[in-house]
């Protein structure tokens, strides 16, 4: 079963630890954090559970159709949207419990002082194939 782990810049439940923006950490703390994330993805590849991941740049734009022959309407980027997704990782695991365990592991990525961030991650199931034997 595939799950999408979503990392948010903003939004979701209240933060457990206020670790401040990454730009204000010590360089070695940033290295440790980035290294943890990289190792996590590598471990998932080795366990045969990795599907893909991408980080998203913060500056997004809203776009919509505005009628035949007219250029698309754009809005934003917004400095203070309520929810902002920082990146995603797709995993393919045995069950939901495993997806939650992996999300918790990712949430333990080190922050300032090497302490776990306890960051909230959103776990979303991906639709699978419709089973043949259902009726």
């Amino acid at each position: 079963m595939k799950y999408l782990l979503l990392k948010h810049y903003r939004g979701g439940p209240e933060r457990v630890v206020d670790h401040g923006p990454l730009e204000e950490w010590r360089p070695e703390e940033v290295d440790a954090h980035v290294g943890y994330m990289r190792d996590f993805a590598r471990r998932l590849e080795e366990s045969g559970e990795f599907v893909g991941e991408q980080a998203l740049a913060p500056g997004g734009t809203f776009v919509r159709y505005d009628g035949e022959g007219r250029p698309p309407v754009t809005d934003g980027p917004f400095a203070e949207t309520k929810d902002l997704i920082a990146g995603w990782m797709m995993i393919d695991v045995e069950d939901e419990a495993r997806a939650h365990a992996l999300a918790a592991e990712l949430s333990a990525a080190p922050g300032p002082g090497g302490e776990p961030l306890h960051e909230w991650l959103e776990v979303r199931p991906v639709y699978g194939a419709a089973p043949t034997v259902a009726d």
Binding site: K2, E45, E46, S47, G48, E49, F50, V51, G52, D92
Partner: peptide
């Protein structure tokens, strides 16, 4: 068939 990267499936099979 299972819509995962070949490297992932190779690891799954080898484990």
């Amino acid at each position: 068939a299972y819509l995962v990267p070949e490297a992932t499936m190779a690891q799954r099979i080898s484990r």
